[in-house]
Amino acid sequence: MTQRRLLIPSLVALGQEAGFAMNAGVDLIRIRTFQDGALAAVTELKPDRIVRIWRSHWAQQLPATADEMNTVELVGGNIGEFEGELCFRNDDQQIAVLTGLVPLRDPNFKFSPILHQAHYNVLMPNCETYVVLVNLAGEGDKPARPNRLQVEIRNLAADVLAVTEIEASFNTTCLLPIGDVARRNGVAPEQGLSVRIRGGASQFAVFTVFRNLSSGALGIEHSLPPIYFTEAPFNPALRSCFQKAAFGDLKL
């Protein structure tokens, strides 16, 4: 049976401490901390049934970094349909989002590219929208190949305004500030933008974070991958046609 992990991105760059909470009986929690894409620490905890654990409680010898990614492994207990809670805090507030665990793949697993339609951006003078891409290629050695994604920016009326590429290093957190990326590509964000992100070769979890640039206040939600919109990705009879339609023109 495939092992599963809860992926915790770092929002240190936004002044937030990461954590997670769970309400389930398990025997052991094993947290792996990756920095610069490499495994930097492993922490094991024997939890109560209800726990909320912050980054300052594990890997305490390592200051949290902006590219850090943590994985949570739950050992024992019945966690079939378990949803994990990711939480982030500063001195003013706490945000949280419930999300599923992702499968831990074998070293030779061939990942499909991801498709994230970031249509829900709030881009105002005092608000930035971040796409948070956290990915797990594996818990062993990092793959040598790059993990590249195409970013296509459109206005709400469907005109393509810019196409660019980003690199999301394996086993890291990558923050993509939509307004900033748009400006760097000569696009005014305030008109309202929709962004299509495709590519990569890793197990991704994608979140959207809104940030009030004056107060630092945040809002967060997980993404809705294509399976929410169509049965095709998980239907063997439809999958290959869907892959060809969604990614056939993608060149990275």
Partner: peptide, 10 residues
Amino acid sequence: DRGAPQITHS
């Protein structure tokens, strides 16, 4: 003015 947008999926 101090708050951030909050979001939830369908």
